[in-house]
Write a protein that binds this DNA or RNA. Structure first.
Lengths: 206, 206
DNA sequence: TCGTCATATGACTTTTAAGTCACATGACTA
DNA sequence: TAGTCATGTGACTTAAAAGTCATATGACGA
C-alpha cells in the first residue's frame, strides 16, 4: 500500500505519477522497469517517490491492483446476470466487456496481461497475495451451470474447456488489437460472434 | 553467430555452456538473465565467454535459433504429409509433435514461448531477423486447404480461426504441464483428441 | 513573528550488471 | 629449444539501477 502522503497529494500530481508508472510498466516488465525513469517522467524527486511508496514493489502492486479493480468494474454487471442469461450470452457479454476494458485501458490491460503471463512465481505471489485472478475458475462454474441447464454438451472435459475459453478470451483481445484497431464497435461485435460461433458449433463442415 | 572459438571447443565444454545458458534464460527473461551467472555456472571465465560470443544478444540468438531448429525437426515429418492427410489429422499430429517437443525440451520450449510473448519488439526484430515464427500463417494455409477439400465450414473467418488455433496449440501445452505432468502418453493423446473434438464440433448440446 | 511538522529534494551509497584488457598458458612449428 | 598463435583468465571499467539521508521549504497555529 502506498503511504498516506501519496493519497494526500493533489490529484493532478498523483495522476502524473500514475501515468508515468503506467507508461513505464507497460513498456517494461517489472524487473526492467526503472523507478528513476518514472521519477524523471513525472517530474518528482527520487526522494519524494520514497515518501509515497515503500519501494518499487509497492508501486507495482498498486498499479496491478488498480487494473484488477477496474477490470472487475467492467465485468461485474455481466456477472450479476449469471442466473438470468444462458451460457453463450454470458460468455459473449464477458468477451465484449473484456475487449472494451482493454480498449479503454490499454496500458493497464497490457501490464496485467504481461504480469499474469510472467514466470516469476515468487513475485506473483508477492503481488497477487490472495487475489490471484482465476478466470479459469469462473469459466468452470459457468460451464457446469450450462451443462446443468442442458445448454452445453455434458461430455466435454470441463477443466480443459475452461482453459480453452480463458485462452480464447485473451486471444480475441490480441486479434482485436492486431487486426482491427480503430474499428467501430460493430466490427468488434462481429468478431466476438464469429468466435462464439466456432466455440458453439466447431469448424467442421457438416 | 558465436565465434569460431566456440565451435572449436571440446563438445563437453560447449554443452556445459549451453546448459548453463538454458538454465539462466529459462528462469529469467532476456533482460534479467545474467552472463555473470552463466559464466559461473558453466565454470568458465568471463573473458572466455567473450572469446566465444560477441555479446549477450549473440548467445541468446544462438539459443533461440537452437530451439527453433529443434522444434522444426519435431514438426517437419508432419508437414510432409500435408497433402495426404485431412485437416484434423494434420492438426492432431502437429499438436502432438508440439507437446512432445515441449516435454522433451522444456527449457528450450519455455525460452521460446516467453520470448515470443514478450513485448520488446526491437529485441524481437534483432533476434528473429527474417525468421519470425508465424504458426498463424501455417494454420491459415491448412484451413484454406481444408475448406477447398470440403472438410471445413467455408463460412469461418480464416484469420480469426487460425489465431484461435495458434492460441489453443499453446494452451494445450500449458494445460498438459499444469494438469497432467508425469503422464503416460495415452493421457496426452486423450487430451489432444478432446480438444480437437471441441474444435470440430463445438460445445453446444445438440 | 516564531516554531513545528509534513513534505520535497538530489547528491550519495550500494549493488549488480555487461563488457574490456593486459597478461598467462600451452600446443604445435621451425 | 625458441617462438608464435589461439585460447584462457579475472581484476577492472563503466553504466545503471534501487534505495537513503541530511537538509530545505513552506503552510499553519499560537
Amino acid at each position: 500500500m502506498p503511504k498516506n502522503t501519496f493519497f494526500n497529494l493533489p490529484e493532478e500530481k498523483r495522476e502524473r505519477i500514475i501515468e508515468a508508472a503506467l507508461d513505464e510498466f507497460a513498456k517494461n516488465l517489472y524487473h526492467n522497469a526503472s523507478i528513476t525513469r518514472i521519477v524523471d517522467n513525472s517530474g518528482i524527486a527520487k526522494g519524494s517517490f520514497y515518501q509515497y511508496f515503500e519501494d518499487k514493489k509497492d508501486l507495482f502492486k498498486y498499479i496491478v491492483d488498480l487494473g484488477g479493480k477496474k477490470k472487475t468494474k467492467y465485468l461485474e454487471h455481466v456477472l450479476t446476470e449469471i442466473d438470468n442469461m444462458n451460457f453463450f450470452s454470458l460468455i459473449r457479454e464477458l468477451f465484449i466487456a473484456g475487449i472494451i476494458f482493454s480498449k479503454e485501458n490499454p496500458k493497464l490491460s497490457n501490464i496485467g496481461y504481461n504480469f499474469a503471463n510472467s514466470t516469476d512465481e515468487k513475485l506473483k505471489q508477492e503481488i497477487y497475495g490472495e487475489n490471484v485472478p482465476k478466470s479459469n475458475y469462473m469459466f468452470k462454474i459457468l460451464l457446469r451451470k450450462g451443462i446443468a441447464r442442458g445448454e452445453i454438451n455434458p461430455d466435454i472435459d470441463v477443466g480443459l474447456v475452461s482453459q480453452m475459453i480463458t485462452s480464447l478470451s485473451i486471444s480475441i483481445i490480441e486479434y482485436f488489437f492486431k487486426e482491427i484497431r480503430k474499428t467501430d464497435d460493430m466490427e468488434m461485435l462481429d468478431l466476438v460472434d464469429k468466435m462464439l460461433f466456432v466455440l458453439k458449433n466447431g469448424i467442421e463442415r457438416n
